[in-house]
């Protein structure tokens, strides 16, 4: 029992963080708690610190909005936090859609979908094209375009207010990841994750690989939602997982039986 908990320590921690954040938003709206008010596009922490989603703010600026100082400060606070420390941790530690796609991909493994499923070949870089395209679309239509279809917004507002017909999009993402493309939504399409990848590209917290302990079992590659970040390192050398799309979810560390992977702090100046 204890070893199983330990084996999933980061997964459990991530779920605790994700659910706590949702609970704080919910409590703020339902009971007037003042810890974390708002949602993942903008919120106020302890009634003082503004937090704003950088991609949302970028779209608003592209649309030509004159936004309040709080929002700009909030976007900078978030960008600095993930840029210095967290990397792309938003995606696996905060975003509620991660719970949906993790479930889909867990089921995908259990049902052995990949044994029979047709391969679909899309570039992992598509998300950066999506990011750029949505900024252009925001400029053209004069509104933050992705916020009209953002499943993260649907999810959190759905929990706090009403989800309306928005559950269909959440379900579609679930089915897409389960049956169509492995790690499809978060790993290929989501422009929010793409933004956090770029913001967090130089962050300090990284997974470190110790080649001397590695037995080349491949467990880490099996669970990693962004396999391309492991490829340059695993089986080859010791070093940091520097790929910008690593979400610091820690799944690779948990499944490693040989103590070859751990969270570590990368030097800012030297990339390796």
């Amino acid at each position: 029992m204890m070893s199983k908990l330990l084996k999933n320590r980061y997964l459990i921690l991530r779920r605790i963080v994700q659910i706590t954040i949702l609970a704080l938003y919910f409590g703020a709206n339902a009971y007037g708690w003042k810890v974390l008010v708002g949602n993942l596009s903008y919120s106020k922490f302890l009634q003082a610190i503004p937090l704003a989603d950088p991609f949302t703010v970028l779209q608003m600026l592209a649309a030509g909005a004159v936004v309040g100082v709080d929002v700009l400060v909030g976007a900078v606070v978030i960008a600095v936090f993930y840029g210095l420390i967290g990397g792309r941790a938003f995606c696996s530690w905060v975003c509620p859609i991660n719970m949906v796609t993790d479930l889909a991909n867990w089921l995908r493994r259990k049902l052995k979908i990949d044994r029979d499923a047709r391969r679909i070949n899309i570039s992992r870089r598509f998300r950066y094209w999506a990011l750029g395209t949505l900024l252009v679309v925001s400029f053209v239509v004069g509104a933050a375009a992705y916020e009209f279809v953002n499943p993260i917004g649907f999810f959190v507002r759905g929990l706090l207010f009403s989800i309306g017909f928005g559950w269909t999009l959440i379900l579609a993402i679930f089915l897409f990841d389960l049956l169509i493309l492995k790690h499809g939504w978060c790993g290929y399409i989501c422009p929010v994750g793409a933004t956090y990848s770029l913001i967090g590209s130089k962050s300090l917290i990284r997974v470190e690989h110790n080649h001397l302990n590695c037995t080349n079992c491949g467990n880490c590659k099996e669970v990693c939602p962004e396999k391309q970040v492991l490829n340059p390192v695993i089986y080859r050398k010791s070093g940091f997982i520097n790929g910008i799309e690593c979400t610091n979810c820690g799944r690779c560390i948990e499944v490693c039986n040989d103590n070859a992977l751990k969270f570590s702090i990368r030097s800012f100046l030297k990339n390796n």
Partner: peptide
């Protein structure tokens, strides 16, 4: 409305303030 749709970040703080 045209400016509102650009400027609203959809955070729900107004609705929260209305409720509480």
């Amino acid at each position: 409305e045209k400016d509102f749709i650009k400027t609203c970040i959809r955070c729900g703080l107004c609705a929260e303030a209305c409720k509480n």
